[in-house]
Design a binder for these strands. Structure first.
Lengths: 220, 220
DNA sequence: GTCTATAAAGGGATAGAC
DNA sequence: GTCTATCCCTTTATAGAC
């Protein structure tokens, strides 16, 4: 735990550097963005470093320079994704008003899915398959969040604020519905007969999902 | 369209042969079962022919003998899976009693997920990612089923049998919940604190999911 | 039909110039 | 920090004996 020198941030994972490394951070971001798209489309094993590099007009070697191996790149991406996901359930607290809290939670979750559809797909693969990062601590954190927020739901039930549900399973149901709109976008586009979901589509989807959740809880 | 010889079935895709090929069908089944497990665990690109072969103590060459290429094996597997999935929604008809129909649909769907968890994961990958078979006719069929069954739900709404929902989105929500229990089994095991889901667990899960669905429709 | 050995291609990773 | 050329391992696929 040596003190950091002047102008140099003390960062464990080489994350943010204040003065030096502007180019470095910019390159890392470009690579992570490309990796998110390619890994989402082909999965961890199916994605190639060549395609990631080519999609941003960069030599393969540069990616290795910044992230070492393909596996390290993937792990870094998952950390980046989980970090943003982590706080979508912050609004679910024992003292919150269930109707407003659930509504906000679902709308934030769907909004994140809409803004970062590729991220949701990558996260889905981490949870469903044997890939690097499928056994990491931060995933244990995700599980802990699900557990603690499930207890919040249970507390609402105990306080007679909502109809009885199993908190953990109800949260999984909400998660499942929002995740679905990311994973199965191809299928949905087929069903809805459109090449892509528009802004009004997302509003309509949010209305439907929120409505379902509130009806289950008997607080629509 | 030449007439089939005596004792030889006329099969377009080399599916069922009555007299000859008992060993052949048995080998194909063993390979498909192994492929289902391995493809589910690692995804299409991550799975290797060697691992599939080794898991059933068979030389790699035999798999190529029966299925040609890795891609053809995957396509054959998807066909096999979709075939079984296809009929889970048969009970959803305009004249059916919504409560019984929805309950049966969800219980059959979850039962299939329990019996063939790997199949559900493979199917998830087909819908979510760029893999062989992600643009096939039978997937178009799946979409058509979702569309037609969505219209059944809409008809129930029109007949005032259930509370208003968008049929397609409601079906997607049901699909999402059941699919979730296949894709995210690792995460759920973490949350539920168990190494695997037991028989009573599946009963409880079915009760929860059915209850949610019926509450949304206002017919619990 | 089954198996061993091997050919052929693809892709992760690195060396080393600039 | 950036890029080209290349190494080398993995994996698909097949040839050919049994």
């Amino acid at each position: 735990m040596a003190a950091a020198g002047p102008g140099i941030a003390a960062d464990g994972q080489g994350q943010a550097r204040p003065r030096k490394g502007r180019i470095r951070e910019e390159s890392r971001r470009r690579i992570l963005d490309a990796a998110e798209r390619i890994f989402a489309r082909h999965g961890f094993a199916g994605a190639t470093m060549a395609e990631i590099a080519q999609s941003i007009g960069m030599p393969k070697a540069n990616i290795h320079y910044y992230f070492g191996t393909k596996e390290e790149l993937y792990r870094a991406l998952v950390v980046d994704i989980v970090e943003e996901w982590r706080h979508t359930s912050d609004c679910l607290t024992v003292d919150a008003e269930p109707r407003a809290a659930i509504t906000q939670f679902l709308r934030e979750k769907l909004d994140l899915t809409r803004r970062r559809p590729h991220a949701a797909k990558v996260f889905g693969e981490v949870n469903a398959r044997a890939v690097p990062a499928d056994d990491q601590d931060y995933l244990e954190d995700v599980r802990r969040v699900l557990e603690s927020k499930g207890q919040v739901i249970d507390a609402w039930v105990a306080a007679k604020k909502i109809q009885p549900v199993d908190g953990r399973h109800f949260l999984m149901a909400l998660w499942a519905m929002t995740q679905y709109y990311a994973d199965f976008d191809g299928q949905m586009r087929g069903v809805l007969g459109k090449p892509g979901l528009t802004e009004p589509d997302w509003g309509y989807i949010a209305d439907q999902v929120v409505s379902y959740a509130l009806r289950v809880l008997g607080i629509e």
